[in-house]
Each structure stands twice: as C-alpha cells, then as structure tokens.
C-alpha cells in the first residue's frame, strides 16, 4: 500500500508541477526515480517533523501540493501543533502519508504503534482522514488528492493486504462503500480491518446471522447519509477498527447515531483496541489476535452481541 501510494505520488508529480514530495529520513532508495527526474521537487529533510510540516505549509501557501511521508506516530503525535496550526488553521492542501497505521509496527513496540492517530486527526477542523482497504483502493484514491481542499491524513496498512476493494464500486472521498448488503447486523469498518470484517461476515452468514459490511474508508468527514440510511434497516451495528476505542471510527459512528437518529438508534458494539499501550510484540496479526480483532474472534463477539440484542 505504501509503495503504491508513493508510486502514485511520483506519477502525479510527473503530470503536475505543483506536486512536491517531503520525507523525513525514509528508507534508502525511497522514490529514487522521483529524486533523479525531479530533484527540485524532492525533499528529504531529516528527522525534524515539526519543521517539515511548517515547510510544507509554506510551500502550500504559494501554490504547491506537498505530499509528506513518514511513520504515522511521528506525523500525528510529534508535530501535532504544526499539523493543527500550520495546516488546518490555514486550510492548506498538504497530504500526510502515514506509514504503519494501527499495529503494523508490532515488533517495534508502543513508540511506533499508531493506534490513536485517527482520533488525533479527527479532532482537527478541516482535516480529512482516509484509510483505504488495500493497494488497489489506494491507487484509486491518491489521484483524487490533487484537488481535495485542505489537509488530508492518509493511513497506510502494512502492505500485501488482501485485495477486497472492487473497482466497479468506484471511490469517492467521504462516500462509504457498501461491500455487502446487511442482514440483521451491519458491520462498519475502515482500513485493512474491512477485509477481516468481510471474512467475519462470511463466517456469520454461514451460521445464519446475516451481516452487511460498510467500508468507511473516509473516517472524516463520515458518510452520515449512508450510515443513517443503513442504521434504520438493521437491528445492530458493530464497528471494527485497528485503533483504540477512544475517538476513532466507533466513536464517530456512535456520535452520529446519538446526534442524528430521531428514532431509537440500533445498539452499537465497538470492537477495537482498549485504552492502553500494547504490552506485546510479535506481528500485526499477533496483536490483532491478542485484542480479539481477527475474523474468528470478531465473529464470536458479533454473534454474542446479536444474541443479546435479539
């Protein structure tokens, strides 16, 4: 997914002179072709995220569209004030490409786990937050970023994630994609959790519990219309995210239902990471299993919840 996003930035830069790339201290060889062919618009500025965001703001103020890339934790926690003030307050078209959203960097521990990044970014006015499901969806999304107003936070998965997105369903920022028609239950997921939600839905369907899957690739702005429409058709909603339960997709969904549904909202179960710093290493899959976020465990939690509801 990361490779696809950076390749797309390179392609955009070839077509549009407004595109510049800014990295911190990325892996050797990152976007060599970009650097070789368009050296004036390729910046690798060292481990200095606060400066990089301000610099991107300055470039954007005079008409450039900077794509900034580094590890998600350092784009969110490290330079939060710069993102809030330099980018959001000025409403500038800077794109933050965040490596390793969620638990991708499991072996590296809590310093590198971006499990509150969506909450942090969602809290900022004018910020758009997008977490594509796979590299094909990423490829459909990145070209759209050229013309989006304001700053955009792009959450990347590990790479090699199963392809579950469907070109025929298209991609519009802020418009959720219904991947599977709902039965009694609607699962709402984002990022790479959508592939796990689909598998869980399959398992549940086989055991007689009809589950739909709404892929909320854009966590901000939330697709209110799709969610409210579907909420009125189901008995229960389950949100699934690779993120803490504080302020992420589940919070956004529940806020919307509480604020906007005139009739009683269906019960909501939020599945995600508890309010903690993960205390294990291993792999992303290991940690997802640890927190009950792999398909079998998801199916189990959803089945129990549906039984209580129904």
């Amino acid at each position: 997914m990361r490779r696809t996003s950076l390749d797309m930035v390179y392609e955009l830069a070839k077509q549009d002179e407004r595109v510049v790339f800014i990295g911190s201290d990325l892996g050797a060889g990152t976007l060599d072709a970009f650097r070789d062919e368009m050296p004036d618009r390729f910046f690798m500025e060292g481990v200095s995220e606060a400066n990089i965001i301000g610099m991107a703001a300055g470039l954007a103020m005079d008409g450039f569209i900077p794509y900034v890339n580094t590890i998600a934790t350092f784009l969110t926690r490290r330079c939060f004030e710069q993102v809030a003030m330099d980018l959001c307050l000025h409403n500038l078209p800077v794109r933050l490409i965040a490596n390793g959203g969620g638990l991708v960097y499991a072996p590296l521990g809590p310093t590198h786990l971006a499990i509150e990044d969506m909450a942090i970014m969602r809290a900022l006015p004018r910020m758009t937050v997008v977490a594509p499901a796979d590299k094909e969806e990423m490829a459909r999304f990145i070209p759209l970023t050229l013309d989006l107003p304001g700053p955009v936070y792009i959450r990347l998965g590990k790479g090699g994630d199963p392809i579950v997105s469907d070109e025929r369903k298209g991609f519009t920022v802020g418009k959720a994609i219904l991947m599977r028609e709902p039965g009694r239950v609607l699962l709402v997921s984002t990022g790479v959790m959508t592939n796990r939600a689909l598998t869980a839905a399959e398992l549940l369907n086989e055991s007689g519990l009809g589950c739909g899957v709404l892929h909320m690739h854009t966590v901000k702005p939330l697709d209110d219309e799709a969610l409210l429409d579907l909420a009125s058709q189901v008995e229960a909603i389950v949100t699934i995210e690779e993120h803490t339960l504080v302020g992420g997709l589940g919070s956004a969904v529940r806020d919307l239902l509480c604020d906007r549904l005139v009739t009683a909202a269906p019960p909501v179960l939020r599945l995600g990471i508890p309010d903690t710093f993960p205390d294990k290493y291993g792999t992303q899959d290991d940690l997802l299993a640890y927190y009950g976020l792999q398909p079998d465990a998801l199916a189990h939690s959803i089945r129990e919840f549906a039984a209580k509801v129904g």
Partner: peptide, 11 residues
C-alpha cells in the same frame, strides 16, 4: 521559521 523556509523554497 519553518513556514518561512517553505515560502523561500517556493519562491
């Protein structure tokens, strides 16, 4: 200064 740096690069 970071913003000014970006403006100077843009120029």
């Amino acid at each position: 200064l970071p913003i000014g740096l970006g403006l100077a690069l843009a120029a």
